[in-house]
């Protein structure tokens, strides 16, 4: 009796139903199998099978949209970590931030990553918009995607604004006081909009929990849905716009 060699084990694994359900075509060596590999994979299929040469030149896009998306993912991950220690209560919030910084392993790193990524995301989204504008990439057939992009800008700004209150320090309190005061200058529903935003008539517990919910659930979800449409539309509109 001979023991099975390494080659037999590899063959056994590769012929198993589990392996073949995960890898549905042989190793891609031709144009056709490469295309198949991309199309058969849920993560890869988001990418086009072929990309125009000008589109991968870094100085054409500076990858600003990609960086914004990367920062969004980073914010999601670091945000989930921070949620383990942060309680949105006026009695605890500030103390929780202090203890994240001083008592939690990698807490200061996580919080700083979240904060800096948030600042950077506002910047990269803004620069991305400028890049698209100066390339004229908002023109037909991409005008719908430009609109989605504007909504994503608003989502980014709103996420930034709601997150600003959460440390519950002086700058947070007064920033939201001034910010929500602006709502009182809105036409028709001036006091109502401020009342609804604040969850009362001043920045208080009602405001903190409201902003927290919008920051950690409502707007990340809205932004994610908009991003799905945004990325899909790039493909549907013929990829990254060509040089004028």
């Amino acid at each position: 009796m001979t023991l099975p060699g390494p080659g037999d084990v590899v063959r056994y694994v590769k012929e198993s139903g589990l392996w073949r359900s995960l890898f549905r075509q042989p190793y891609p060596t031709t144009s056709r199998t490469r295309a198949l590999a991309v199309m058969n994979n849920v993560f890869l299929h988001l990418h086009p099978v072929r990309v125009k040469k000008h589109a991968v030149r870094y100085t054409y896009t500076f990858c600003l949209g990609g960086i914004s998306f990367f920062l969004f993912l980073m914010l999601t991950v670091t945000g989930v970590y921070l949620m383990f220690f942060y309680v949105p209560s006026v009695a605890r919030a500030y103390q929780d931030i202090i203890s994240i910084e001083n008592a939690v392993a990698f807490g200061q790193l996580t919080r700083n990553m979240h904060r800096w990524a948030a600042h950077l995301m506002v910047l990269t989204v803004f620069l991305h918009m400028i890049r698209v504008f100066y390339h004229g990439a908002y023109k037909p057939p991409r005008e719908f995607n430009w609109t989605i992009g504007v909504l994503l800008l608003f989502s980014t700004l709103w996420l930034s604004f709601t997150g600003y209150l959460l440390p519950w320090d002086q700058i947070a309190f007064w920033a939201i006081t001034v910010g929500t005061n602006m709502a009182t200058y809105a036409p028709f529903l001036s006091r109502e909009s401020s009342f609804w935003l604040l969850g009362g008539i001043t920045v208080d517990q009602g405001t903190l929990i409201r902003f927290y919910v919008m920051h950690v659930i409502a707007f990340p979800l809205i932004a994610a849905i908009l991003m799905v449409v945004h990325f899909w539309r790039i493909r549907k509109d013929g990829g990254i716009s060509g040089p004028v």
Partner: peptide
């Protein structure tokens, strides 16, 4: 949704 999230201020400020 608006009705549900309308602030409840009974007895407190508001």
């Amino acid at each position: 949704t608006f009705a549900f999230t309308w602030p409840n201020v009974r007895g407190g400020l508001g």
